[in-house]
């Protein structure tokens, strides 16, 4: 079992949503919601700690796979996150994605934290950062207005794929484990 302590936050995004915690939770774990705000991906998640987690492409292939590390509705969801649908990515160590839902007055504060078990290069982090603000804004819009935002998948930032290839070739996380 993966312990949270091994992971250090690399990206932390916060948004306030005018909705009940239960509604935000449902939007995170229900595929009819994720299809609308998460680049068309469908979530497939076993509702228990230790269960399996996947994000599926429209053709049914897995884009992300992982395990449920914390299933605490409607407050906290932690999953390990392995990008499976892109070349080279399955050789990188899985990261940890945590969603925290906290009541904040009439709203909820949703915090998404992407954490890593190794000193992940900035060029790889940037790739993830470009997508999350769109996803979270679209989730907010869906819950508040009933409509997601029109989001478009951009090409990864310059140097992103090269940084992934370099990491896969040199495997710096193996050296860190020894230290």
């Amino acid at each position: 079992m993966t312990s949270r302590e091994r992971f250090k936050p690399g990206t932390v995004y916060v948004t306030y949503i005018a909705a009940a915690p239960e509604a935000v939770w449902q939007a995170l774990v229900d595929r009819t919601f994720t299809q609308q705000y998460f680049f068309g991906l469908s979530i497939d998640i076993e509702p228990r700690t230790g269960g399996a987690f996947r994000l599926l492409m429209p053709d049914g292939s897995a884009h992300v796979t992982g395990d449920v590390i914390a299933w605490e509705p409607p407050r906290r969801l932690d999953v390990t996150w392995q990008v499976a649908g892109m070349k080279g990515f399955d050789a990188l160590p899985a990261c940890l994605v945590s969603y925290e839902i906290e009541p904040a007055g009439a709203c909820v504060r949703l915090t998404m934290t992407e954490s890593h078990s190794w000193a992940i290069p900035e060029a790889i982090l940037q790739g993830g950062r470009s997508g999350w603000p769109q996803i979270l804004s679209s989730l907010k819009s869906l819950l508040e207005t009933g409509k997601p935002l029109q989001i478009e998948k951009k090409d990864p930032p310059a140097g992103f794929l090269a940084a992934v290839e370099h990491a896969v070739a040199t495997k710096p996380w193996l050296r860190e484990d020894r230290g």
């Binding site: 936050p9 990206t11 932390v12 995004y13 916060v14 948004t15 603000p133 769109q134 979270l136 804004s137 907010k140 819009s141 935002l149 029109q150 478009e152």
Partner: peptide, 17 residues
């Protein structure tokens, strides 16, 4: 941590697709 989500929301309000 830098949180750019509010800036993204402002951009969404005035800059369409």
């Amino acid at each position: 941590y830098l949180n750019p989500v509010p800036i993204h929301e402002i951009a969404e309000r005035w800059i369409g697709k």
